[in-house]
Simulated scan of single mutants.
Amino acid sequence: MLSTYVDKQDSSTQVDTYGGTVKIETAEQGAPGRVTEDRIRVLPNAVVVLDGVTSRTRPPDRNGGWYATQLADELARLINDTDPLADLLAQAITTLVARHDLVPGDSPSSTAAIVRWTEDTIDALVLCDTPVVAFGRTTHVLEDTRLEDLRPDPDILRWKNKPGGYWVAEAEPVAAHQALTASWPRAEIEKVIVATDGVSCGVSEYGLFTWEELARIPLGEALDRIREAERGDSEHKRWPRFKTHDDQAIVRLCT
C-alpha cells in the first residue's frame, strides 16, 4: 500500500556511520481521519523528509503521498557523499517526470528537506516549508518562507514554481536549484531537526516552544502539544489557517 493512515508513531535508531554513531529519532502522525502525505526516509548517511501535496487543479489518482513516496525512493537511490543535494533532487524530479508522464502545474508535488552527513560536514537542503534546524554553539535555521510570504494571495497557485513565487518539487527539475542549502562542520553541530509544517508551526506560528526546546523534549510530546493547541482553536480564530490539523513528521539527529 502506497500510503496509510498513521497513528502517532515514535522510533529511535542508531546508525554507525562516518565519524561515529548518529542517533536518529522520528515521530509522525496523520491529521485525524485522513491519510498522511508526509514521508520520512532514513538512509545510512542521510535523512529525507517530504510533505506531499495533491494537485488542486485536477486531483489525480496519484496524490501527494504517492508523489512523496516516489520522490523518497528515488532520492534514496541517488544520494551519495559528494554530489550537490540540489543536483540530486533535480535528477530525482527528472526521473519521475519521465517515468510517470508528470505535467507541470497539474501534478502532485512535495516539499523536500534533506540532511546528509560525512565525517567532516553536515549538508542540508530545504525546498518549500519543511525547515532544517541545526544546533551547536548557536542555532542555525534553514527555512524557506516564500510560500508563507504569499499566503495573503487568494490565487496562490499561480505563483507555484514561478520567478518571484514559491518553489516545490513537482514536474519541473529547475525547482530543485531554487532550494536553500547550507553546510556546517560536523564537529560544531550536536543535533539537527527536520520537520514538516505540521510540526514547525508549533514554533513559528503557535509559539508553543522554541527550536531549542524542541531539540530537547520528547518528540511525541511535541506532536501532542500541537494537536491540543489546534483543538482549542477549532474555529481558526487565534491562528488563521486552512485546516484545523495537518500531517506531522519530525526527525531529530544527535550527531
Rank of each mutant, 00 (worst) to 15 (best):
A112Y: 01
L142R: 07
P44R: 04
R252I: 05
P60T: 12
Y166F: 13
D197F: 04
V199T: 01
S107V: 15
E170C: 00
V126K: 06
D144A: 07
G202L: 02
R151Q: 10
Q91K: 13
R225N: 07
K23S: 15
Q9M: 09
M1I: 13
Y5T: 09
A72G: 10
P152C: 13
A175E: 00
R227G: 01
G202T: 11
N161R: 08
V251C: 02
E228V: 14
R99V: 13
S110W: 00
L78H: 07
G30L: 01
N80H: 11
A27K: 00
Q248N: 04
I250W: 09
D7I: 02
A90K: 10
P173G: 03
V199Y: 03
D144W: 00
S11R: 14
E188P: 05
Q29G: 06
V192I: 07
D87F: 01
I193S: 02
R216P: 02
R77T: 07
L253E: 06
S109G: 12
K8W: 08
T26P: 08
R227F: 06
V103T: 15
G64D: 03
W66V: 14
A31K: 15
L223Q: 13
I156C: 04
P163E: 03
D247K: 05
K8R: 14
F242H: 13
L75G: 06
I93R: 07
I93N: 00
E228M: 04
S107T: 13
N161T: 02
T121H: 04
D246N: 09
L219C: 01
V194S: 01
K160R: 03
D61V: 15
P152D: 10
V35Q: 08
A222I: 00
G164K: 06
N161A: 05
L102G: 11
I114W: 06
V6Q: 15
C201P: 01
V132M: 03
A86K: 12
G30Q: 03
A113R: 04
R99T: 02
Q178W: 10
I217G: 01
H236R: 15
D149G: 08
K191P: 00
L88D: 08
E228R: 13
V97G: 05
T255M: 14
R41C: 06
L223S: 07
I250C: 01
K8C: 08
I250L: 06
D144H: 05
R227E: 01
P32D: 09
L85S: 08
W66D: 13
E28Q: 10
R227V: 05
T82D: 14
D61L: 12
G165I: 08
A86V: 12
Q14S: 11
M1C: 12
T118P: 05
V103H: 09
A31W: 02
P185H: 14
T4H: 12
A27C: 15
T210S: 15
D38Q: 13
D38Y: 08
T145P: 00
Q178M: 11
T139N: 08
L157S: 15
H140F: 13
S12A: 14
G105R: 01
R116Y: 09
S234C: 01
E28F: 03
L214H: 00
A171Y: 09
D233E: 06
W184F: 13
R241F: 04
E205I: 10
K162P: 02
P84E: 06
G52Y: 10
T139Q: 00
